[in-house]
Simulated scan of single mutants.
Amino acid sequence: MKKLILVVTLVVSTLTFAQERSRKGEKLTPEQQTELQVKKMTLELDLDAKQQKELKAILLEQAQKREVKIAEIKAKREKEEKLSADERFEMKNKMLDNQIEHKAQMKKILNEEQFKKWEEKQENRKEKMSERKQKGSEKRKKGQPVEK
């Protein structure tokens, strides 16, 4: 009887913990994300009003495209469809094209000093992401849960 109570308690506590982690709150709209991103970049790069306006248009367009792409990926996951090698290549190729286009747009909007700062920030982000990715793969190998 004691073992049964212990097992039930463990199961209930595990379920409630799992439910708490899955609820992360409401997501921001693409417009809200863009507004915050522009303000943050204004503080970091000392943007003027014209640059803010141009940047806001570009970032809003990107955020909307990203939302559509995320929805497509979620739909495929729900259907449990795997991407073929050609689809994966096409997706990565398109992503790199978008990055090249974004970098060119940023170069037009920002002055040399701002662009240099922006590139440094981008490089730091990439490094942090690769570190997180490495930590996650190490934890998966050890069988530990991965934190997000």
Rank of each mutant, 00 (worst) to 15 (best):
M106D: 06
I100D: 12
F89E: 09
E81D: 06
K108P: 00
K76V: 04
K108E: 12
A75E: 05
K92T: 00
E80V: 08
A75V: 02
S84Y: 07
K107C: 00
Q99S: 08
M106G: 12
S84Q: 10
N98K: 09
A104P: 00
E87T: 02
K103M: 13
E101D: 10
R77E: 08
E87G: 07
K107S: 03
K107F: 06
L83S: 11
E78H: 05
Q99T: 01
M91G: 03
A85H: 09
R88N: 01
M95T: 03
I100K: 14
L96V: 09
K92A: 00
E101L: 05
K76F: 03
R88K: 12
D86M: 13
M91I: 03
K107T: 01
K94N: 13
E80C: 00
E101Y: 03
K94A: 13
N93D: 09
K103R: 11
K94M: 11
R88T: 00
H102A: 15
L96E: 15
L96Y: 15
A85R: 13
E78N: 08
D97G: 12
N93M: 15
S84G: 14
E81N: 06
A75P: 06
K108H: 04
D86Q: 14
Q99F: 12
Q99H: 14
E81H: 01
I73E: 08
Q99R: 14
K108T: 04
K82L: 11
K94E: 11
Q99Y: 13
K103I: 09
N93E: 11
E87I: 10
Q99L: 13
H102E: 13
D86F: 11
Q105C: 00
L96F: 15
E80P: 03
E80D: 11
E78T: 09
H102D: 13
R77I: 10
I100F: 12
K82G: 06
F89S: 05
K103F: 14
K94Q: 14
I73K: 13
M106V: 06
K103G: 05
F89N: 09
M91W: 12
R77W: 00
H102K: 06
I100S: 07
R77P: 01
M106Q: 11
A85K: 13
Q105G: 04
S84E: 11
K103N: 11
K74L: 08
I73C: 02
A104T: 03
E101H: 05
Q99V: 01
A104Q: 07
I100E: 14
N98R: 08
K94T: 07
K94F: 04
H102R: 07
K74C: 00
K103Q: 12
K79G: 03
F89P: 03
E101R: 06
K94L: 10
S84D: 07
M106C: 07
E90F: 10
E90M: 12
E78S: 04
E87W: 04
L83M: 14
D86V: 06
M95F: 12
K108G: 01
K76L: 13
K92Y: 05
M91C: 01
D97A: 15
E87F: 04
D97I: 07
N98H: 09
K103P: 05
N98L: 08
E90R: 15
L83Q: 10
L83F: 08
K108C: 01
R88A: 02
K108S: 09
K107D: 04
D86N: 11
D97K: 15
A75F: 07
H102F: 14
E78F: 06
K74E: 09
L96H: 15
N93G: 08
N93V: 08
